[in-house]
């Protein structure tokens, strides 16, 4: 029998974890309301798992379509959440059109354009389109909110796909590299939550999120970096020490990514960013930490391993 590669081992572990969690939810006694909520949440996890694994395993460009779709839905959710101007309809359309262009650059491995298209070219093109319309009232607010949305939902998310185009001296298991980013980010959320529940006493940033504690944050950093120290060297081209350093960076980035979307929702005055993922809330609620971790993970590896 062929030996399993690291990607297959990681996918099998996630599958095992999902089966275990599902069995626990069905097996343990919860109040009916709690059980229903947990089951709904679990069902959505299964859909996310199938969606991502399908994207990774089917032939190219399926993962580009998969991540591009996430960007599109997330940007749509973001633009549906924030105040927008009627005059800007065409500017928003340009922002949407940036998605296929960005993913084209990423998919074809054109690294330079992938990195400058949104931070440089869209930075110029969006105000040009807005100036041609000529509505000055609320200009700066509309422009900066739109560009931040593109950075978070398109530029950052496209870094997940960008990992697939990296060329390393010896490492070739790009699927493992990508899946490990997503798993580690979600695990970091879980580690923070569990540590906070078990040991949480001292609030860390109560103005943004009253539930986050120092104990939760540090527990997340410790557990995530431990995960990186032991598992990272198999899933990434990094050695143990570099992987450990990346684990610390990723845990911190995930924490602040999560809180950035929390701050945004608090600013707007909504609880959930949407209802696209039943049991979780909106898509932005789920990918909040990933927006930051994808950037850190990619650029760390690009700097130290390529």
């Amino acid at each position: 029998m062929n030996q399993l590669d690291n990607f297959e081992i990681l996918s099998a572990s996630i599958l095992g974890a999902l089966i275990l969690a599902t069995a626990l939810i069905w097996g343990l006694k919860f109040s009916p309301k709690q059980a229903e909520e947990l089951k709904l949440r679990m069902k959505t996890w299964w859909y996310i798992f199938i969606f991502l694994l399908g994207g990774l395993m089917l032939p190219s460009p399926s993962f580009a379509i998969c991540t591009g779709l996430i960007s599109f839905l997330a940007l749509k959710e973001y633009l549906s959440l924030i105040p927008t101007r009627r005059a800007d309809r065409r500017v928003l359309l340009w922002a949407y059109l940036a998605i296929p262009i960005q993913y084209y650059f990423v998919q074809t491995g054109w690294y330079g354009m992938s990195i400058v298209f949104i931070p440089v070219w869209m930075f110029i093109l969006l105000p040009i389109r807005m100036i041609l319309i000529g509505e000055t009232s609320g200009f700066l607010k509309a422009l900066s909110e739109l560009h931040w949305g593109l950075m978070i939902n398109v530029f950052a998310i496209s870094h997940i796909l960008m990992l697939a185009t990296l060329k390393f001296p010896s490492f070739t298991d790009h699927k493992a590299l990508i899946l490990f980013l997503i798993v580690a980010t979600e695990m970091n959320d879980v580690f923070q939550y569990v540590s906070g529940k078990l040991f949480g006493k001292h609030k860390i940033i109560p103005k943004v999120s009253p539930n986050k504690t120092w104990e939760g944050f540090l527990g997340g950093v410790i557990l995530t970096s431990t995960l990186f120290y032991f598992v990272g060297p198999y899933m990434t081209p990094l050695n143990h020490n570099y992987s450990l350093a990346l684990g610390v960076c990723l845990a911190v980035a995930g924490f602040f990514g999560d809180l950035s979307i929390s701050a945004l929702k608090r600013d707007i005055g909504v609880k959930d960013s949407g209802n696209l993922l039943p049991g979780h809330g909106g898509l932005l609620d789920r990918i909040d930490s990933l927006c930051f971790t994808a950037l850190i993970y990619f650029h760390f590896i690009h700097y130290f391993a390529v």
Binding site: K76, Y96, G274
Partner: peptide, 18 residues
């Protein structure tokens, strides 16, 4: 709610919103 943002009267262009 919102369809007037996606495609209001007098403008044939569709801009996605939830």
């Amino acid at each position: 709610h919102g369809l007037g943002k996606v495609m209001p009267r007098g403008d044939p262009i569709v801009v996605p919103f939830f």
